[in-house]
Simulated scan of single mutants.
Amino acid sequence: MDDRELSLKLLVVLSKAYKVVMDRAAKDMKKNGLSESEFTVMELLYHKGRVPMQRIGESMLVTSGGITYTVDKLEGKGYLRRVACPEDRRVTYAELTEAGKSKFDDIFPAHASAIESIMGGLTEEEKRQAIALVKKLGLYAQETK
């Protein structure tokens, strides 16, 4: 196989693996009554604390409209609140409420175990290698716009 064929094969293998892994992860997220987007926003806020709304979209690679919709849903469930920035009225933060923190405290350990199980096909060393290689590929692809 030449380099072009290997590159195409790698794209197919990465795409298929990503789809299967994300489908399994999403199934785990949904069993807790949260969409993938809701879970991802809650996870970001759980680990980072208060975050500007526009940064949530950048972190998740989602449009501002998609983030607004997700934040509205989480706010409606009582898991999140919007907080105006006192220094800059253009900035609005999102943060978890106590109910949101409590919900995530309850569901995250089992989710982390599910992800560990999904990734169980690789040894610890293979996971480190995969992380380094996929990161290297992503950074290179980003530079070659």
Score class of each variant (00 low, 15 high):
M119H: 00
V134M: 13
V12N: 09
G100V: 10
M1Q: 06
V20R: 15
V134L: 15
P86K: 07
E124R: 07
K27A: 12
H111Q: 14
I67Q: 05
A26Y: 13
G138Y: 08
M29S: 04
A112P: 05
L6N: 04
T68S: 11
A110H: 13
Q142L: 15
K31S: 08
S15N: 14
A17F: 12
G33H: 08
S59F: 03
M22R: 10
V134N: 10
S64V: 00
E95K: 13
Y140G: 10
Y140H: 15
K145F: 09
G78V: 08
A17T: 13
G100I: 05
E116F: 01
E126K: 02
T70M: 05
K145H: 04
T123R: 11
V134T: 14
K9A: 09
A141I: 06
F108V: 10
I67C: 03
D23A: 15
V91L: 01
F39I: 01
P52R: 04
D3K: 07
D23Q: 11
E58N: 06
I115R: 04
Q129M: 13
T97K: 04
G33C: 07
S15A: 13
T123E: 10
I115K: 14
K135Y: 11
K73I: 02
Y69I: 00
A99V: 08
G65R: 05
R128G: 03
E36W: 10
D3P: 09
T63G: 03
R4E: 08
M22H: 11
V13R: 04
T40R: 15
D106W: 11
F39N: 05
K27R: 14
S113E: 14
S15M: 14
R4P: 01
L34M: 05
T70W: 06
V20S: 09
M119R: 07
P109L: 02
R90A: 13
K135H: 06
G76A: 14
A110E: 15
Y69G: 02
N32I: 10
Y46Q: 07
E98G: 00
E38P: 01
C85A: 03
L11H: 15
A132N: 13
G49W: 07
K101T: 07
A94P: 01
M42I: 02
E58I: 00
E116M: 10
Y18H: 12
A114I: 08
L8W: 09
T97A: 05
E87D: 14
D3F: 12
L8R: 11
L61H: 15
A84Y: 02
K127Q: 08
K145M: 05
S35F: 02
G76Y: 07
G49F: 12
Q129H: 06
T123N: 04
K73S: 06
V62D: 00
V62L: 09
K19R: 15
E143I: 09
L61P: 05
M119F: 14
F39S: 03
L133N: 09
R82H: 02
L45P: 07
L10Y: 06
K101F: 07
